[in-house]
Design a protein around this nucleic acid. Structure first.
Length: 337
DNA sequence: ACAATTTGACCCGG
DNA sequence: CCGGGTCAAATTGT
């Protein structure tokens, strides 16, 4: 069977096509412009994601002129492509990934004296590894988005404590979170939907609150950007981030240079739909099969693994979602080829 | 019981 | 061959 990424990719492209077809249908003047707009956004998102998967090195989405261009070689991080385990597949596809992909950004965070509760960026991370790095005294932790498999979220990060100043943690992000979903409707279970939404809200509040808190306490934050051009995604991807470092019980958090409160500025044209949103959301995203043995993600999978129907990432949370109503189209109905 | 982390093995590029 | 990244079985946590 194809590996997970391939499948996700396929889903993405397929979805893109279907959405485009839908858009064509809705080209009639009778359709609302909002609908069209929504479809458009989705399509673009699909493209974006697909491209990012294919080309981890350099998809640039016309971002703001951050100016700073880091020439630093940036750590080279190879892409995983689930190597072993499926010895069955032969020559096939996409194995040619650029290994020198850059990290979306590097953030150095110094947590002040006070370490409050799990300051977290609203994303759910799952640690999948830790390694001692030769030059360093402290190990490096590897995290990936909890919803990697269930929603195809490719976000990843590394956290490493600084040698010089142990209170500083360097956090590198890679990939963008695609686990954000709106779907106030959708939801297979309307009942739990409510509580979930509530949760979500709370999360958000907590988050902001905490963030502010930490600022108040004099958190020192420094960020640097790795060479822009190589960025898979522009910096607005991670408005606010934070991390907790296991054993030590310490926390780090990171933010982007100029925007502290998710105040994603300028040039982000229409990208604001990447608003920070917590990870607990309902979803119906799925990712069929080949999830096989792998962990708990299974529990999140709701719909049938039968095909490429649903997008693993589900919808995006376009800022204006509540207004729009493209829900109807998002049904798996056809979605296939 | 399930979900997340730990940790050594494995893989891959340089 | 080595170092860094990821996997996955075992372990720990909830």
């Amino acid at each position: 069977m194809m590996d997970w990424e391939q499948k996700t990719l396929l889903n993405e492209l397929t979805q893109g096509r279907e959405l485009t077809n839908l858009l064509r249908k809705h080209l009639h003047p009778s359709s609302s412009p909002q609908t069209r707009q929504a479809l458009l956004e989705k399509i673009l998102f699909s493209y974006e994601k697909a491209l990012s998967m294919l080309n981890c090195t350099g998809f640039v989405v016309e971002t703001k002129p951050t100016g700073s261009t880091l020439e630093s070689p940036a750590s080279v991080i190879a892409n995983n492509s689930s190597p072993r385990s499926e010895g069955s597949d032969k020559k096939d596809v996409i194995k040619k990934r650029k290994t020198s992909s850059g990290w979306t950004e590097q953030v150095r965070v110094c947590s002040g004296t006070s370490l409050e509760g799990p300051l977290d960026d609203g994303y759910c991370w799952r640690k999948y590894g830790q390694k001692d790095i030769l030059g360093s005294n402290f190990p490096r932790g590897y995290y990936r988005c909890t919803h990697r498999h269930s929603r195809g979220c490719l976000a990843t990060k590394q956290v490493q404590r600084s040698d010089q100043d142990p209170s500083i943690f360097e956090v590198k992000y890679r990939g963008r979170h695609t686990c954000n979903q709106a779907s106030q409707f959708a939801a297979a279970t309307p009942k739990s939907n409510h509580s979930r939404q509530k949760q979500q809200l709370e999360e958000k509040q907590k988050q902001t609150q905490e963030t502010f808190l930490s600022f108040g306490t004099g958190l020192k934050v420094k960020t640097e950007e790795l060479d822009n051009r190589e960025d898979i995604f522009p910096s607005f991807t991670f408005p606010v981030g934070s991390e907790e470092v296991d054993n030590t019980g310490m926390f780090v958090n990171s933010l982007m240079e100029n925007d502290i409160m998710g105040n994603l500025s300028p040039a982000i044209s229409e990208s604001n739909y990447f608003s920070v949103s917590p990870c607990h959301m309902d979803s119906f995203g799925n990712l069929g099969q080949n999830v096989q043995t792998s962990e708990s993600d299974l529990t999140e999978i709701i719909s049938a693994p039968t095909s490429v129907t649903n997008s693993p990432i589900g919808d995006l949370d376009f800022s204006s979602l509540d207004k729009l109503e493209f829900d109807p189209f998002y049904n798996p109905e056809i979605f296939f080829s």
